[in-house]
Design a protein around this nucleic acid. Structure first.
Lengths: 210, 210
DNA sequence: AAATGTGAAGTTGTTCACAGCT
DNA sequence: AGCTGTGAACAACTTCACATTT
């Protein structure tokens, strides 16, 4: 929580905190009480010093000579990330990819819930019955306002992406997880995370050339 | 192509080259002949100087006072990324997410083709008929070797991820697009790109807190 | 006049080295 | 003795400022 008075934590650190949290969860499942920065860093795929620096941004939790108490550290990171406050999310664009994301179970386990989906053609035949209600685009504005939705997953075709984005933002959405292959123009205070599968593949293919 | 004698291009630059390429494609569709670094940078969501620096890593293509020729620049970037050489890709783990990725049309348009899918339970009932052949895990090794597969998309459950990864690498896979929520341990010369949707959401939710 | 290409300056992020605690 | 916490050194990346070309 970027409250005044607190240090600003770098973006990359926040990313890694999420990773640490997941590693800690596995340690807990294995009933481990404490962990050293070396062990946790290894599990997370980073250097021990980086882990310690990351934690130092928002406190000092370790015991010298011993390491970190798994439960405590887990909770501290959770608090810092604000994971406690479960955010409602909507999804816009129920094509192939959107449909998949809707049925993907990975979200709920992590404390997010897609509470509704929207599509330009909500009655189009889909193979699978959805858990979430599916509405037309004309109901988008009212829904966002009514449920105070702050986060949206965008999986519409490229041509529609900017228009939909504008609609989302006008009605109060502050964070967008963008799967459409376009760079969205947004005001400074709106946050966009891009996930572009084609680019990820292209990137891989570049680096594996001998 | 990281050939000896060429400068090493930073990872982030490679990422952005992919983005520029897509922006240029749109300019071409709109029949634009030339573009300035300012205009292209804006479309790509970066600063003009950054765009120019990125390009400078592998050549000088612009004309001062004029800008870049869309077609030429497009081709140069394509060459640099090695997009020309269309890589065959396999997908392992046909659950919800894997299924979605298989039916996602975004890949083929960008020059990738998922040529086969593998799953521990290949006969499990799935709602949708697949375009790609679906095999059991026992056929994985032979297939990779026979088709000289270098890239894989991994969408298996966390518990299976590392085991499958080892299998892939032993048989020659050099690049993995990992959707499973685990940090994979791999040798240095193997490249992993992680896509973790839960972390992306968690990250968004952190930054939109007021 | 307009826009690129680039050395230098600035910024951000990572790693080292070691002091300091338990 | 073992392991954390952190200032300082280092490395990577970005932006600036401006010389240079068309």
């Amino acid at each position: 929580m970027k409250r005044a008075g607190r240090p600003v934590i770098p973006r990359k650190t926040i990313y890694r905190l999420s990773i640490y949290l997941r590693c800690l969860a596995r340690l807990r499942e294995n009933r481990l009480g404490t962990v050293s920065s070396e062990a946790l860093a290894k599990a997370a795929g980073v250097k021990p010093t980086q882990l310690r620096k990351d934690l130092a941004y928002f406190g000092t939790f370790g015991t010298r000579g011993l390491g970190y108490i798994v439960n405590d550290l887990s909770q501290k990171i959770s608090e810092e990330l604000g994971t406690a406050s479960l955010q409602p999310v909507i999804l816009v664009g129920v094509g192939n990819l959107g449909l998949a994301l809707l049925s993907y179970r990975g979200f709920e386990k992590e404390g997010f819930e897609i509470i509704a989906a929207f599509d330009a053609a909500p009655r189009r035949k889909r193979d699978k019955p959805l858990k979430q209600p599916l509405y037309g685009m004309d109901e988008l504005e009212a829904f966002i306002r009514k449920h105070r939705v702050k986060m949206a997953i965008l999986s519409v075709p490229a041509a529609a992406a900017q228009t939909v984005t504008n609609q989302l933002i006008e009605n109060g959405v502050m964070g967008i997880l963008n799967f459409s292959p376009i760079v969205l123009a947004v005001p400074e205070d709106v946050m966009v995370n891009n996930v572009n599968l084609a680019i990820e593949l292209e990137n891989l293919s570049y680096f594996i050339q001998d």
